[in-house]
Simulated assay, not measured.
Amino acid sequence: MSVYRVVTLILGWQVAASVCYYAVFAATPFFRDEFGLGGAAVGLVVTALTLGYAVFLLPLGALTDRFGEHRTLTAGLLGLTVGTALVARADSYLVLLVSVFLLGSVYGTAMPGTNKAIFDRTPPGRQNLAIGVKQVGVTAGSGASALLVTGLASVLYWQAGFYVATAVGVAVALAFWVAYPRGEQTGEASYPDFRRLLANRPYRSLAAAGVCLGAGLFTTTGYTILYVEESVGASVAFGGVVLAALQVSGSVGRVVTGWLSDALPGDPRRRIGAILLVQAVASAALFVVAAFVEGRLAAAATFVVLGFFVLGFTGVYYSCMATVVSAEEMGGATGGGQLALTSGALVAPPVFGHLADTVGYRWSWLLLAGLALVGAGFVVRVILAESTPESAASAE
Results as ranks from 00 to 15, higher is better:
residue 300 A to P: 01
residue 295 G to M: 09
residue 308 F to V: 01
residue 299 A to G: 03
residue 303 F to A: 01
residue 289 V to T: 04
residue 288 V to W: 11
residue 313 F to S: 00
residue 281 V to S: 12
residue 274 A to Q: 15
residue 324 V to F: 05
residue 300 A to F: 07
residue 304 V to W: 04
residue 298 A to M: 05
residue 305 V to R: 11
residue 279 Q to C: 13
residue 315 G to A: 10
residue 301 A to I: 02
residue 319 S to G: 09
residue 286 L to I: 09
residue 284 A to N: 09
residue 303 F to R: 06
residue 287 F to L: 11
residue 299 A to K: 03
residue 321 M to W: 03
residue 286 L to W: 09
residue 274 A to L: 15
residue 289 V to D: 03
residue 294 E to M: 05
residue 275 I to R: 14
residue 322 A to D: 07
residue 320 C to V: 07
residue 290 A to I: 02
residue 279 Q to F: 14
residue 293 V to D: 12
residue 275 I to K: 15
residue 277 L to F: 15
residue 284 A to Q: 11
residue 274 A to M: 15
residue 313 F to Q: 03
residue 292 F to V: 14
residue 274 A to F: 14
residue 295 G to W: 06
residue 301 A to T: 02
residue 287 F to I: 02
residue 316 V to L: 04
residue 277 L to V: 12
residue 282 A to K: 02
residue 304 V to Y: 06
residue 309 F to D: 00
residue 306 L to I: 02
residue 311 L to P: 00
residue 299 A to W: 07
residue 299 A to R: 06
residue 279 Q to W: 10
residue 299 A to F: 07
residue 295 G to R: 08
residue 313 F to E: 04
residue 322 A to I: 04
residue 286 L to R: 11
residue 316 V to Y: 04
residue 289 V to Y: 04
residue 308 F to K: 08
residue 318 Y to H: 12
residue 310 V to F: 08
residue 311 L to Y: 08
residue 285 A to M: 13
residue 274 A to N: 14
residue 284 A to V: 02
residue 313 F to C: 00
residue 306 L to F: 06
residue 273 G to F: 14
residue 315 G to D: 07
residue 306 L to Q: 02
residue 302 T to C: 05
residue 304 V to M: 09
residue 306 L to Y: 01
residue 318 Y to R: 05
residue 292 F to S: 12
residue 322 A to E: 10
residue 304 V to S: 08
residue 279 Q to G: 11
residue 319 S to C: 01
residue 309 F to L: 04
residue 324 V to Q: 03
residue 282 A to C: 13
residue 319 S to P: 01
residue 296 R to L: 08
residue 318 Y to P: 03
residue 277 L to N: 14
residue 323 T to I: 08
residue 281 V to K: 13
residue 306 L to R: 01
